[in-house]
Design a protein around this nucleic acid. Structure first.
Length: 319
DNA sequence: AACTCCAGCAACCGCAATATG
DNA sequence: ACATATTGCGGTTGCTGGAGT
Protein backbone atom coordinates (compact mmCIF):
# COMPACT_ATOMS: atom_id res chain seq x y z
CA UNK A 1 0.00 0.00 0.00
CA UNK A 2 2.64 2.47 0.96
CA UNK A 3 4.39 2.66 -2.35
CA UNK A 4 5.65 6.18 -2.27
CA UNK A 5 7.13 7.09 -5.62
CA UNK A 6 7.92 10.52 -4.46
CA UNK A 7 10.13 12.12 -7.00
CA UNK A 8 10.44 15.35 -5.13
CA UNK A 9 13.28 16.12 -2.86
CA UNK A 10 11.64 16.09 0.47
CA UNK A 11 13.42 17.43 3.43
CA UNK A 12 11.66 14.88 5.53
CA UNK A 13 13.88 12.03 4.40
CA UNK A 14 15.76 11.93 7.62
CA UNK A 15 18.13 9.04 8.02
CA UNK A 16 17.14 8.02 11.47
CA UNK A 17 13.39 7.84 11.09
CA UNK A 18 12.44 5.93 8.04
CA UNK A 19 9.06 5.39 9.55
CA UNK A 20 7.14 8.07 11.30
CA UNK A 21 6.38 7.03 14.77
CA UNK A 22 3.37 8.45 16.42
CA UNK A 23 5.32 10.52 18.87
CA UNK A 24 7.45 12.44 16.41
CA UNK A 25 4.46 13.78 14.58
CA UNK A 26 4.36 17.52 14.43
CA UNK A 27 1.43 19.46 15.79
CA UNK A 28 0.36 23.04 15.90
CA UNK A 29 0.60 25.70 13.23
CA UNK A 30 1.90 24.76 9.85
CA UNK A 31 5.15 26.21 8.61
CA UNK A 32 5.67 27.67 5.16
CA UNK A 33 7.90 24.74 4.31
CA UNK A 34 5.25 22.27 5.28
CA UNK A 35 2.67 24.11 3.23
CA UNK A 36 5.00 24.14 0.27
CA UNK A 37 5.68 20.46 0.63
CA UNK A 38 2.02 19.61 0.81
CA UNK A 39 1.08 21.81 -2.13
CA UNK A 40 3.84 20.37 -4.25
CA UNK A 41 2.99 16.84 -3.39
CA UNK A 42 -0.67 17.28 -4.19
CA UNK A 43 0.20 19.08 -7.41
CA UNK A 44 2.17 16.06 -8.50
CA UNK A 45 0.17 13.23 -7.04
CA UNK A 46 -3.28 14.55 -6.32
CA UNK A 47 -5.13 14.52 -3.08
CA UNK A 48 -6.66 11.69 -1.11
CA UNK A 49 -5.25 8.76 0.83
CA UNK A 50 -4.16 11.28 3.36
CA UNK A 51 -2.26 9.03 5.70
CA UNK A 52 -0.05 7.65 3.01
CA UNK A 53 0.17 11.09 1.44
CA UNK A 54 1.51 12.50 4.65
CA UNK A 55 4.02 9.69 4.89
CA UNK A 56 5.11 9.83 1.29
CA UNK A 57 5.40 13.57 1.25
CA UNK A 58 7.70 13.38 4.20
CA UNK A 59 5.41 15.44 6.33
CA UNK A 60 5.51 14.64 9.98
CA UNK A 61 1.83 15.20 10.23
CA UNK A 62 -1.17 12.98 10.50
CA UNK A 63 -3.23 12.41 7.40
CA UNK A 64 -6.08 14.22 9.06
CA UNK A 65 -3.94 17.23 9.68
CA UNK A 66 -2.81 17.31 6.06
CA UNK A 67 -6.34 16.97 4.80
CA UNK A 68 -7.57 19.74 7.02
CA UNK A 69 -4.77 22.04 6.07
CA UNK A 70 -5.38 21.45 2.40
CA UNK A 71 -9.15 21.75 2.50
CA UNK A 72 -9.34 24.71 4.81
CA UNK A 73 -6.38 26.71 3.76
CA UNK A 74 -4.19 25.62 0.88
CA UNK A 75 -6.76 24.56 -1.66
CA UNK A 76 -6.61 27.07 -4.53
CA UNK A 77 -10.32 27.73 -4.64
CA UNK A 78 -10.66 28.52 -1.00
CA UNK A 79 -11.93 32.02 -0.47
CA UNK A 80 -10.54 34.14 2.26
CA UNK A 81 -11.77 37.35 3.75
CA UNK A 82 -14.86 38.66 5.38
CA UNK A 83 -18.16 36.92 5.09
CA UNK A 84 -20.24 39.13 2.85
CA UNK A 85 -23.76 40.24 3.62
CA UNK A 86 -25.12 37.85 1.07
CA UNK A 87 -23.17 35.03 2.59
CA UNK A 88 -24.34 35.96 6.06
CA UNK A 89 -27.90 35.87 4.88
CA UNK A 90 -27.36 32.53 3.28
CA UNK A 91 -25.72 31.11 6.36
CA UNK A 92 -28.55 32.24 8.58
CA UNK A 93 -31.12 30.80 6.29
CA UNK A 94 -29.39 27.51 5.72
CA UNK A 95 -28.65 27.13 9.38
CA UNK A 96 -32.31 27.61 10.15
CA UNK A 97 -33.01 24.75 7.80
CA UNK A 98 -30.28 22.37 8.67
CA UNK A 99 -28.86 23.38 12.01
CA UNK A 100 -25.18 22.75 12.59
CA UNK A 101 -24.68 20.90 9.34
CA UNK A 102 -21.68 23.01 8.55
CA UNK A 103 -20.37 21.07 5.62
CA UNK A 104 -23.79 20.98 4.03
CA UNK A 105 -24.12 24.71 4.50
CA UNK A 106 -20.63 25.22 3.13
CA UNK A 107 -21.61 23.46 -0.06
CA UNK A 108 -23.85 26.40 -0.82
CA UNK A 109 -21.13 28.95 -0.26
CA UNK A 110 -18.51 28.30 -2.89
CA UNK A 111 -15.02 28.68 -1.58
CA UNK A 112 -16.07 28.79 2.03
CA UNK A 113 -15.16 25.96 4.32
CA UNK A 114 -17.29 24.37 6.96
CA UNK A 115 -14.72 25.43 9.50
CA UNK A 116 -14.99 29.05 8.47
CA UNK A 117 -18.76 29.03 8.61
CA UNK A 118 -18.70 27.29 11.93
CA UNK A 119 -16.31 29.89 13.28
CA UNK A 120 -18.49 32.65 11.92
CA UNK A 121 -21.49 31.19 13.64
CA UNK A 122 -19.75 30.75 16.93
CA UNK A 123 -18.03 34.09 17.04
CA UNK A 124 -20.69 36.34 15.55
CA UNK A 125 -24.07 34.76 15.79
CA UNK A 126 -23.66 33.25 19.19
CA UNK A 127 -22.29 36.52 20.39
CA UNK A 128 -25.59 38.18 19.58
CA UNK A 129 -27.47 35.45 21.38
CA UNK A 130 -25.29 36.06 24.36
CA UNK A 131 -26.04 39.75 24.25
CA UNK A 132 -29.73 39.02 24.19
CA UNK A 133 -29.22 36.62 27.04
CA UNK A 134 -30.90 33.80 25.26
CA UNK A 135 -29.83 30.48 23.93
CA UNK A 136 -28.77 30.40 20.32
CA UNK A 137 -31.05 27.43 19.74
CA UNK A 138 -34.03 28.94 21.46
CA UNK A 139 -37.13 29.81 19.55
CA UNK A 140 -36.75 33.37 20.70
CA UNK A 141 -33.41 33.73 19.07
CA UNK A 142 -34.46 31.91 15.95
CA UNK A 143 -37.44 34.18 15.61
CA UNK A 144 -35.23 37.15 16.18
CA UNK A 145 -32.96 36.06 13.39
CA UNK A 146 -35.82 35.40 11.08
CA UNK A 147 -37.83 38.47 11.81
CA UNK A 148 -35.15 41.00 12.44
CA UNK A 149 -31.73 39.99 11.44
CA UNK A 150 -32.44 38.50 8.07
CA UNK A 151 -34.77 41.26 6.89
CA UNK A 152 -32.17 43.76 7.97
CA UNK A 153 -29.52 41.97 6.01
CA UNK A 154 -31.74 42.09 2.98
CA UNK A 155 -32.28 45.77 3.54
CA UNK A 156 -28.57 46.34 3.73
CA UNK A 157 -27.91 44.32 0.66
CA UNK A 158 -30.50 46.37 -1.07
CA UNK A 159 -29.12 49.59 0.31
CA UNK A 160 -25.70 48.59 -0.85
CA UNK A 161 -27.00 47.95 -4.31
CA UNK A 162 -28.60 51.37 -4.38
CA UNK A 163 -25.56 52.99 -2.93
CA UNK A 164 -23.29 51.31 -5.36
CA UNK A 165 -25.42 52.39 -8.23
CA UNK A 166 -25.44 55.95 -7.02
CA UNK A 167 -21.77 55.95 -6.38
CA UNK A 168 -21.06 54.54 -9.76
CA UNK A 169 -23.20 57.12 -11.43
CA UNK A 170 -21.90 60.10 -9.58
CA UNK A 171 -18.40 58.85 -9.78
CA UNK A 172 -18.33 59.64 -13.44
CA UNK A 173 -17.53 56.18 -14.59
CA UNK A 174 -20.13 55.29 -17.14
CA UNK A 175 -21.80 52.18 -15.98
CA UNK A 176 -23.89 50.65 -18.67
CA UNK A 177 -25.65 48.19 -16.41
CA UNK A 178 -27.57 49.86 -13.70
CA UNK A 179 -29.38 47.54 -11.38
CA UNK A 180 -32.89 48.25 -10.30
CA UNK A 181 -32.32 47.48 -6.71
CA UNK A 182 -35.70 46.46 -5.38
CA UNK A 183 -36.63 43.91 -7.95
CA UNK A 184 -33.15 42.63 -8.33
CA UNK A 185 -32.58 42.25 -4.66
CA UNK A 186 -35.75 40.34 -4.17
CA UNK A 187 -34.91 38.04 -6.97
CA UNK A 188 -31.40 37.55 -5.88
CA UNK A 189 -32.53 36.90 -2.38
CA UNK A 190 -34.73 34.16 -3.68
CA UNK A 191 -31.80 32.84 -5.57
CA UNK A 192 -29.53 33.29 -2.65
CA UNK A 193 -31.48 31.49 -0.05
CA UNK A 194 -33.38 29.19 -2.27
CA UNK A 195 -30.72 27.82 -4.51
CA UNK A 196 -32.43 24.47 -4.53
CA UNK A 197 -36.05 25.34 -4.34
CA UNK A 198 -36.89 22.18 -6.13
CA UNK A 199 -35.21 20.11 -3.54
CA UNK A 200 -38.13 18.56 -1.80
CA UNK A 201 -36.00 17.59 1.13
CA UNK A 202 -35.57 21.16 2.07
CA UNK A 203 -38.06 23.12 3.99
CA UNK A 204 -39.37 25.93 1.99
CA UNK A 205 -38.45 28.96 3.94
CA UNK A 206 -41.42 30.73 2.55
CA UNK A 207 -43.81 28.44 4.25
CA UNK A 208 -44.42 27.71 7.86
CA UNK A 209 -41.28 27.04 9.70
CA UNK A 210 -42.12 25.38 12.91
CA UNK A 211 -44.60 27.62 14.55
CA UNK A 212 -43.38 30.70 12.91
CA UNK A 213 -45.08 32.20 9.97
CA UNK A 214 -42.92 34.26 7.78
CA UNK A 215 -43.59 36.41 4.85
CA UNK A 216 -43.04 35.07 1.39
CA UNK A 217 -40.23 37.38 0.52
CA UNK A 218 -38.02 39.48 2.62
CA UNK A 219 -38.32 42.93 1.32
CA UNK A 220 -37.90 46.10 3.25
CA UNK A 221 -41.55 46.78 2.71
CA UNK A 222 -43.10 43.69 4.08
CA UNK A 223 -40.47 42.95 6.62
CA UNK A 224 -41.04 46.18 8.40
CA UNK A 225 -44.77 46.05 7.89
CA UNK A 226 -45.13 42.73 9.47
CA UNK A 227 -42.78 42.07 12.23
CA UNK A 228 -39.94 44.46 12.56
CA UNK A 229 -40.84 47.45 14.58
CA UNK A 230 -41.46 50.37 12.31
CA UNK A 231 -38.44 52.22 13.46
CA UNK A 232 -36.49 54.61 11.47
CA UNK A 233 -33.67 53.14 9.54
CA UNK A 234 -31.61 56.07 10.55
CA UNK A 235 -30.44 54.08 13.45
CA UNK A 236 -29.31 51.13 11.43
CA UNK A 237 -26.49 49.29 12.87
CA UNK A 238 -25.74 49.57 16.18
CA UNK A 239 -25.30 47.78 19.31
CA UNK A 240 -26.51 49.29 22.49
CA UNK A 241 -22.92 49.05 23.51
CA UNK A 242 -22.05 51.38 20.71
CA UNK A 243 -23.98 54.29 22.01
CA UNK A 244 -21.57 56.88 20.77
CA UNK A 245 -21.94 55.85 17.22
CA UNK A 246 -25.64 55.53 17.66
CA UNK A 247 -25.88 59.03 19.00
CA UNK A 248 -23.69 60.36 16.31
CA UNK A 249 -25.89 58.79 13.74
CA UNK A 250 -28.96 60.19 15.33
CA UNK A 251 -27.52 63.63 15.44
CA UNK A 252 -26.40 63.69 11.93
CA UNK A 253 -28.08 61.63 9.34
CA UNK A 254 -25.58 62.58 6.76
CA UNK A 255 -22.76 61.42 8.88
CA UNK A 256 -24.49 58.16 9.22
CA UNK A 257 -25.32 57.91 5.60
CA UNK A 258 -21.81 58.59 4.57
CA UNK A 259 -20.36 56.18 7.03
CA UNK A 260 -22.88 53.63 6.06
CA UNK A 261 -22.17 54.18 2.44
CA UNK A 262 -18.48 53.86 2.98
CA UNK A 263 -18.96 50.71 4.89
CA UNK A 264 -21.16 49.35 2.18
CA UNK A 265 -18.88 50.04 -0.66
CA UNK A 266 -16.09 47.82 0.41
CA UNK A 267 -15.66 45.01 0.54
CA UNK A 268 -19.08 43.51 0.82
CA UNK A 269 -20.92 46.25 -0.94
CA UNK A 270 -18.62 45.95 -3.84
CA UNK A 271 -20.21 42.75 -4.87
CA UNK A 272 -23.64 44.18 -4.96
CA UNK A 273 -22.88 45.51 -8.36
CA UNK A 274 -23.58 42.03 -9.46
CA UNK A 275 -26.62 40.90 -7.66
CA UNK A 276 -27.14 37.68 -9.46
CA UNK A 277 -25.90 35.01 -7.18
CA UNK A 278 -23.71 33.07 -9.50
CA UNK A 279 -22.37 36.22 -10.96
CA UNK A 280 -21.56 37.35 -7.48
CA UNK A 281 -19.72 34.19 -6.71
CA UNK A 282 -17.79 34.35 -9.94
CA UNK A 283 -17.02 37.90 -9.21
CA UNK A 284 -15.75 37.12 -5.79
CA UNK A 285 -13.62 34.33 -7.01
CA UNK A 286 -12.10 36.54 -9.61
CA UNK A 287 -11.47 39.33 -7.19
CA UNK A 288 -9.53 38.00 -4.29
CA UNK A 289 -9.63 40.02 -1.14
CA UNK A 290 -7.01 42.62 -1.04
CA UNK A 291 -7.46 43.76 2.49
CA UNK A 292 -5.64 40.92 4.09
CA UNK A 293 -8.81 39.42 5.34
CA UNK A 294 -9.43 42.04 7.90
CA UNK A 295 -10.63 44.95 5.90
CA UNK A 296 -13.54 47.26 6.43
CA UNK A 297 -17.11 46.28 6.39
CA UNK A 298 -17.04 43.63 8.96
CA UNK A 299 -17.51 45.86 11.89
CA UNK A 300 -20.59 47.23 10.34
CA UNK A 301 -21.97 43.99 9.07
CA UNK A 302 -21.40 42.49 12.43
CA UNK A 303 -23.54 45.09 14.09
CA UNK A 304 -26.89 43.88 13.14
CA UNK A 305 -28.92 45.24 15.97
CA UNK A 306 -29.96 48.69 16.69
CA UNK A 307 -31.11 50.03 19.98
CA UNK A 308 -34.73 50.00 19.04
CA UNK A 309 -34.48 46.45 17.88
CA UNK A 310 -33.20 45.45 21.24
CA UNK A 311 -35.93 47.41 22.93
CA UNK A 312 -38.50 45.81 20.70
CA UNK A 313 -37.20 42.37 21.45
CA UNK A 314 -37.30 42.97 25.12
CA UNK A 315 -40.91 44.06 24.81
CA UNK A 316 -41.84 41.12 22.68
CA UNK A 317 -40.08 38.41 24.54
CA UNK A 318 -39.78 39.85 28.01
CA UNK A 319 -36.08 39.46 27.69
C1' DA B 1 5.48 51.49 26.79
C1' DA B 2 3.76 47.69 29.15
C1' DC B 3 0.17 44.98 30.35
C1' DT B 4 -4.41 42.67 30.14
C1' DC B 5 -8.34 41.13 27.85
C1' DC B 6 -10.76 39.13 24.28
C1' DA B 7 -12.37 38.12 19.47
C1' DG B 8 -11.19 35.57 15.65
C1' DC B 9 -9.24 31.84 13.61
C1' DA B 10 -6.44 27.63 12.74
C1' DA B 11 -5.89 23.30 14.29
C1' DC B 12 -6.90 19.23 17.04
C1' DC B 13 -9.92 15.56 18.87
C1' DG B 14 -13.33 12.03 19.00
C1' DC B 15 -16.76 9.80 16.74
C1' DA B 16 -19.52 8.16 12.82
C1' DA B 17 -19.88 6.85 8.17
C1' DT B 18 -17.92 4.90 4.27
C1' DA B 19 -14.54 2.40 1.53
C1' DT B 20 -11.47 -1.31 0.89
C1' DG B 21 -9.30 -5.77 1.31
C1' DA C 1 -19.74 -10.76 6.40
C1' DC C 2 -16.18 -8.94 8.81
C1' DA C 3 -12.06 -6.18 10.09
C1' DT C 4 -9.40 -2.43 9.19
C1' DA C 5 -8.32 1.89 7.02
C1' DT C 6 -9.78 6.17 5.47
C1' DT C 7 -12.58 10.09 5.22
C1' DG C 8 -15.89 13.43 6.85
C1' DC C 9 -18.01 16.01 10.34
C1' DG C 10 -18.98 18.76 14.41
C1' DG C 11 -17.30 20.24 18.85
C1' DT C 12 -13.65 22.20 21.24
C1' DT C 13 -9.19 24.18 22.33
C1' DG C 14 -5.44 27.20 22.29
C1' DC C 15 -2.67 30.66 19.91
C1' DT C 16 -2.30 35.31 18.03
C1' DG C 17 -2.95 40.00 17.22
C1' DG C 18 -5.45 44.05 18.10
C1' DA C 19 -7.98 47.02 21.24
C1' DG C 20 -8.35 48.98 25.54
C1' DT C 21 -6.39 50.57 29.92
Amino acid sequence: MSSCNNSMDMSGSEDDDQMNTMDDLRRGPWTVDEDFTLINYIAHHGEGRWNSLARCAGLKRTGKSCRLRWLNYLRPDVRRGNITLEEQLLILELHSRWGNRWSKIAQHLPGRTDNEIKNYWRTRVQKHAKQLKCDVNSKQFKDTMRYLWMPRLVERIQAAATTTTTTTTTGGSSSSTTTTSTATTTNSYQQLVLPDQNNTNCDNICSNHGNTQITPNYTPENSSNTVVSPVSDLTECYYPANQDLFQQNNNNNNTFSNGFTDAMISPSGYYNQEMQFQAMIDHQQNNQWTDGGNGGGDDFSDNLWNVEDIWYLKQQFNM
